[in-house]
Each structure stands twice: as C-alpha cells, then as structure tokens.
Design a protein around this nucleic acid. Sequence first.
DNA 1: CGAAAATTGAACTGATTAGTACAATTACTG
DNA 2: CAGTAATTGTACTAATCAGTTCAATTTTCG
Lengths: 199, 199
Amino acid sequence: MDQLSEKGNITRARIVETARELFHKQGVRATSIDQILETSSTGKSQFYHYFSSKDDIVHEVLRFYMRIVESGRGPVLLNIESWDDLERFFYDHVEGVRMLGYERSCPLGSIANELASENEQVRVDVNLVFGYIRNSISGFLKGLKSEGKLKKSADPDALSDFSIATVQGALLLAKVRKDGTPAENTVKHALIHLKSFAK
Amino acid sequence: MDQLSEKGNITRARIVETARELFHKQGVRATSIDQILETSSTGKSQFYHYFSSKDDIVHEVLRFYMRIVESGRGPVLLNIESWDDLERFFYDHVEGVRMLGYERSCPLGSIANELASENEQVRVDVNLVFGYIRNSISGFLKGLKSEGKLKKSADPDALSDFSIATVQGALLLAKVRKDGTPAENTVKHALIHLKSFAK
DNA sequence: CGAAAATTGAACTGATTAGTACAATTACTG
DNA sequence: CAGTAATTGTACTAATCAGTTCAATTTTCG
C-alpha cells in the first residue's frame, strides 16, 4: 500500500463507511464488492488499491468499530462509572435498533454470527471490541466492590459477560419480533438483576 | 409437486437434513445449492423436483425445526413444568453448543440474524418457533402465579422474552469467545434472576 | 405385463461473484 | 517545470451462483 494522501484517505474512509453500513443492513455475504463501490461511487481499481480482499475490508470495518469504541465517539456510552451509566449502556443499544426500525441487530454480533466460525480474524476482531466493553463494565463493578458497595458474592467478570449477552440477545429478539418491547423487557430485567448485587 | 413416494420422501428428507446442518454450520448464504447436493449425494433435478428455490428450502428447514420443537423430539426440553425443567432448558442449550466446539450459535437465531431483515418469511418462521418456546416458559410461570408460587410483580411474558434473549446472547457469546464459560455464567445469572420471583 | 406417474442424471444458461491488468490521470515535490 | 508517486477508469477473467431443459430410468398399480 502506498502512502495515502488526504484525498486517498477520504476515498478510503468513504469505502469503509459504505461497507460498514451495508454489512450492518444486509450482512457481509449479502454485500458484494460491486455494491459497495456503486453505493460509494467508487471504482474497482480504487477498492483494490486500498484493500487487498473482501476479508480485508471486513477486518477494516471491525477495526473501525474498535476505534469508535475506544475513542468514546460511538452512539453508546461505554465509559461506565455509575449505575446510571450502566443503565444508559443497555438502553442506548435498544434505542439504536429502534431508530433503525428493528430491522437490524448489533452490527458486531451480526458479523460475528455470520463469519466467526469460518474466519478466525473476524472472531478475534469482535472479541477485541467485546473485551473492551467487558472491561468497562467489570471495571465499574470491581470499583464498586472495592468500595464495599457491591455484595461479595458478585462476580464482576461473570456479570459483564451476562450484560453483553443480554444486550446481544435483546437486539436479536427485537429484530425477529420487529418490536422493541421484548428487548426493553430483557434489558430491564438484566438491570434489575445487576442492581440486586448493589448494597 | 407430485405425490411423494416413500423413496421420494427419503430423498427429500435427506436434502432437508443436509441443508439444515450446512445452514447451521456455515450460514445460509455461505451454503450453495450445489454444496447441499454434493454433500447429500443428490442431483440438481431432484432438488428442484422437491423444492422450488433456495428460499423454499430455507423455509422447509425452519418448518423442520418447528416440527421438532412441537413434537418434543429435539435436544432441548421444551415442555417446562418445573424450575428444574427451566434450568434444563437453559443448560441444554449451552451443552448443545459445547458439543459442537463452540463453533456455532443457535441455528434459528443465526438464520434469523442473517436473513430476517430481507426475508419476511424467515422472520415469521423463526418467530413461530420462538413463540412456541415463549408460550412454554410463560405457561409455566403463569401456572406458578395462579398457584401463588410466584410474586405478583413477575410478568411471565416479559420473563419469557428475557429467557429467550439470554439464551440467544449466551450462545452467540460462546461462539465469539470459543468458550462456554461466559454462556454458563449468563444462563446461571438468568436463572438466579428468574428464581428470585419464586416465593 | 404395460401404461402412467414419480424420480433421477447430465448438460446447459445467463447472471453475478471476487479479483486482475493496465493505461490514463491527478497531485506532490524538488 | 519536470519527474515521480498516488489515484482512478475501463475492460477483462475465471469461477461460481441459482435455476432450466429434457430425456432416461425406476416405481406403482390396474
């Protein structure tokens, strides 16, 4: 790959953003490179100038999500420092799929579900993002525990995995039902359970 | 479609079973009809004799799951009449993905996640199965409630959706982590929460 | 048996796929 | 301004895709 000029960076970013949107909307395998190029008004030579393969752009889309999450610029608050923050973490996700008409689930969960068994890089990439979120939640819970504000029986790591899993399941259920109610009920009960460990 | 002879039924069932396995293993879009035919040692004319399209066999695979669930012949106990049954419902799912090396999530959730937004029939089909499971769990909880064995604040329908979502999320997380521990923790905490409504 | 119906094999089509080749053009830099 | 590097447009390939055609074979049943 050559050094990128400002113009090159813009083109590259436009391709990544278009791919990200299409992967979320319809899945990776349902999205052809030609469709990414047509939607982003880009030529094929440009695509293969910036990316080496379809697997490569999937990887770049996942790295994009990782940067979003790390930088805190995403639509979901991930810097969790209070019970209110944790509550917002859950409800931001439900609100996110509501805005999209309950026609999509989690963009990361979808890609992982579609490709993780056949593409180890995808599994690792998604794991990195999930791991970051896991650390964010468990860090909050561990902090509470050290302050004596969480029951000793509470396992922060296990409760973090529980949180991520319930969000993933809630978003999938919203998509299957095309209705936010089951997802809202799911995260509501997940929060009740988590807060039951507070003291 | 002509009337099916016994031989025809066997061929048809072989195709459905092969498609079901491949869809679960690698996804629907990653599975070509040619691969289904090669794996099941069947010719293409046979496939289009018994099924009208790829969408059609996806539908038939989902109907197969529905029959499995209704008949109680599946690997997961769905006739839930006690807390032990409900506990088994959760752990059967985790055990199911453990047996497959944590390389797959829920076969229905996977197909729904991949296709529900673009194929309404798929969404409806998966909803039928999820609805059956939902009724099974909420029926048990409603029974408890009428016997005064469940807190009045408990909402059986909401808790059923919570149960289905946590299972879906747990299985996805197991696949992403290639490890059963987060899924076990998830269903363990889901059960603790559900049982907190018992009295 | 013998005819009708069900089942199957093999070759084919047209569209779409990921990826390549290569020349043309634009932008940067000394 | 001249040369070099970055960027882009067009045309292409070989493989694979879902689906079709049609004749051959097997099974069923009076």
